[in-house]
């Protein structure tokens, strides 16, 4: 009797042992390269960290670094960069999401050369590094020549107040590279579209629904979850892009004379808080939007 009782227990223990032996590499790495740095970073952000020849001296200063963000020039320029990032998300995420859905729907039709087109639309994901994008934008290769030839720039400058005209104009200046950020999202939407049963469309057609109605009543509801995944992916992608001014600030302040590691750690945490808030707003907006549609 005890033997039969012990056997499943033994298997359980063995599962745990083998499992954790395989997880141990990751667990060690997590402790050393993620968990320890997270707590140290929190401590740095509450300290004055001074680098000297002999090593680093850390003095606890409480919230002084955080207060400095809201009272010094370095802090203000970081806050400005974060604000720019928030505006960037507000503008680019809808553009990227809508564009990705349109392309996915087009590619999901019965067409020839689908693989070829898909390969083209995914290509930018492979080459879009920070320096490459910077070069393209600086040399003016990131915009469609038509934008300038048709005088869209002049029209923008004339129509909007300067505070708005600049961000809008910059969208047109880098329109192509904004679209370049949608490669992964297009594939996500295609995968979701392929899960929709074609017979649903046929049934709707027999009932007299046109392509337009089919799109809003069948396609969009099926894409709802993927829109959320895609938006989260896009936000994090933009947030971690190496030329993002906010994270450039964090690195620059590490070795700046008047700031240093403590201040940099503090703004890194603030950046994380802002990012988490943006993500939370996006998730709330998208999920409440879905619910309202269902009710109506």
């Amino acid at each position: 009797m005890p033997k039969t009782l012990r056997k499943p227990l033994k298997r359980d223990v063995r599962q745990n042992l083998v499992g954790w032996s395989m997880l141990s590499i990751w667990a060690l790495g997590f402790l050393a390269f993620t968990l320890y740095p997270i707590f140290t970073s929190l401590y740095y952000s509450l300290s004055d960290v001074v680098l000297s020849g002999t090593g680093i001296q850390i003095t606890f200063v409480g919230l002084a670094n955080y207060r400095a963000v809201f009272s010094t020039a370095a802090g203000f320029s970081f806050l400005q960069a974060v604000l720019d990032f928030a505006i960037e998300v507000l503008v680019k995420v809808p553009i990227i999401t809508v564009f990705a859905i349109i392309i996915a729907v087009l590619l999901n039709q019965k067409i020839r050369f689908r693989g070829f087109f898909r390969a083209i639309y995914f290509l930018p994901v492979i080459i879009a590094s920070g320096p490459v994008i910077t070069q393209l934008v600086n040399q003016g290769a990131a915009t469609i020549p038509l934008v300038e030839q048709m005088g869209i720039r002049d029209w923008i400058d004339a129509t909007f107040v300067p505070a708005l005209a600049h961000p809008i104009a910059s969208i047109f200046d880098q329109l192509i590279v904004i679209l370049w950020f949608s490669g992964v999202q297009i594939l996500l939407f295609i995968a979701a579209l392929q899960k929709i049963d074609r017979s649903v469309y046929e049934a709707a057609m027999i009932d007299g629904a046109g392509p337009w109605e089919s799109f809003w009543k069948i396609t969009m509801p099926a894409l709802k979850n993927m829109v959320l995944v895609s938006v989260i992916f896009t936000i994090i992608n933009l947030a971690t892009f190496s030329e993002n001014p906010a994270i450039v600030h964090i690195k620059d302040n590490m070795f700046a004379l008047e700031t240093g590691f403590g201040f940099s750690s503090a703004i890194a945490w603030l950046y994380f808080v802002v990012l988490a808030m943006i993500l939370a707003v996006a998730v709330l907006l998208l999920s409440s939007f879905g619910k309202e549609r269902r009710r109506s």
């Binding site: 390269f33 140290t40 740095y44 964090i250 590490m254 890194a268 950046y271 994380f272």
Partner: peptide
């Protein structure tokens, strides 16, 4: 473990790069 893995995706690199630099 899953929660922690997700956390490493959401937490920006910037938070742990400075202590890593020192380490």
């Amino acid at each position: 473990v899953f929660a922690l893995i997700l956390l490493t995706y959401l937490l920006p690199q910037q938070i742990y790069m400075i202590p890593k630099f020192v380490l």
